[in-house]
Amino acid sequence: MAAATTLATLFIASTATTGYAATEEVTHPVPVAGTPGHYIVVMKSDPLATYEGDVKGLKATKPAEGEQLETQSQDSQRYVEHLQTEQTDLVSDIGVTPDTTYQVVLNGFSADLSGEQVDALRASKDVIGVYPDEIRHPDAQTSTDYLGLGDDRKGRGGVWQQTGGVEKAGEGVVVGVIDTGIAPEHPSFEGKKIKKQKKQHNRNKGAQPYTDGTYVYFDKSDGGQFQAAMVEGQDWDKSDYSSKLIGGQYFYAGAEAAGFDFQYDYLSPRDGDGHGSHTASTAAGNFKVKASIENVDFGTISGVAPAAKISAYKACYVGPDTTVTTDDICAQSDLIAAIDQAVADGVDVINYSIGGGAASTVMAPEDLAFFNAAAASSPVSRSTRSSPVPSRSRSTRVRT
């Protein structure tokens, strides 16, 4: 457990490096009353991660200091159902059809709203805020050589050796990567076929992940259990999951609402750009993987925590020009859905290498989601960019 904590802390420091971020600035003007569009609606009741038990008959679900959110417990499921009922009542009264709902790190939903619906929701006693959906872009990450991990040929010395060697560095930890998806066939994510068996009620720390055909389960080093749905999509099926890549999901309702053309990418967890695979391999790629570009040998590469498991959450999609990021899209509503799902699945740390220009508030839905992810004991690593003003892609060390 100490080794896993050390690697998680190191991982956060390693990925908080200067990136290129977006080339266009995102502003946060006060929304004009009655403007139709795609919005994120945040409700007043606490989400699962921060609920302290103020509703009669529903026990608190906020984890104690040092504990992780138990999303699959009976108390958690009952509170999620309570939030879903509140959301249903609200949208029914206003006449809204949500495309995505949130209950874990944010209590709310995203939807296309008319001007009248925007006004009605802002006036509701059950709503904190109604926020226009925004667009983000993937951010870059740089090398972690300076961290003193150890010899990159044999894995000796440094932090790797202190945590038991590369075979143990990150063992029992799940890294959730929110990005452009992942390439499951890449050798950095090579693993064994997941065995099929019934869900175990007695958790076995250190065991290999397994599946019941619908979900992947993994008993983590902290005593918690990771549980994620095995989804299928374009050029992606259940055979793409492995003992290394134990999660892969995708979110696109916000991008679709923005009119994005998906023909240049995959509607699945598959990476159509390479950025998500890059960030995932940097964080938790296998040790000493041979690297080459167009038959040019670049030696070997290794992730910071090579023994950790990876769960990919695709919320970013690429446009026709692979040389720029301005035609890519990461809708904020999709990013929040990915954060919400990652915490619900039980990841130990979230890697978020997304940029979006200068921020004018720390109370946007994205900020609230990350704050509550910290309450759920899911540390968040975000890339940074050089900017004279606070940036939406700044490093956020929320918990170690």
Rank of each mutant, 00 (worst) to 15 (best):
G356C: 06
G355K: 05
L368H: 11
S360Y: 15
A364G: 10
G346L: 12
D340W: 15
G346A: 06
V343M: 03
F371W: 04
M363C: 04
F371Y: 07
G356E: 04
P365D: 11
V347F: 01
A369I: 05
A364P: 01
Y352E: 04
V347H: 01
L368K: 12
V362F: 09
V349W: 03
G356T: 04
G355Y: 10
V349S: 02
A359G: 01
A369H: 02
Y352I: 14
T361F: 12
M363N: 11
V349T: 07
A374Y: 12
A359Q: 10
A369G: 05
G357Q: 08
A359H: 12
G357L: 08
A344L: 09
A373T: 03
A374P: 00
M363Y: 12
D345S: 05
M363I: 05
T361M: 11
Y352G: 02
D348C: 04
S353L: 11
S360I: 04
V343E: 01
N372H: 14
A358G: 15
F371H: 07
F370I: 14
V349L: 14
A344D: 14
A374V: 10
D345Q: 10
D345E: 13
P365G: 05
V347L: 03
G357C: 12
Q341K: 15
L368Q: 07
A369L: 04
I354H: 00
A374C: 08
G346D: 08
F371D: 06
E366V: 15
L368Y: 08
Y352D: 05
E366N: 07
S353T: 15
N372F: 10
Q341S: 10
A344C: 01
A374M: 08
F371K: 10
Q341Y: 14
N351Y: 08
G356A: 08
V349K: 01
A358I: 09
T361A: 05
F370L: 12
D348S: 07
M363V: 11
I350A: 00
A359I: 15
P365E: 13
V349P: 01
G346M: 09
S360E: 14
D367S: 11
G357T: 03
A373V: 00
S353A: 15
A369P: 03
E366C: 02
A373G: 06
L368M: 11
F370R: 09
A344E: 13
D348K: 00
Y352L: 15
A364W: 13
V362R: 05
M363H: 08
A359W: 14
A373I: 03
F370A: 00
A369K: 03
P365N: 09
I350T: 02
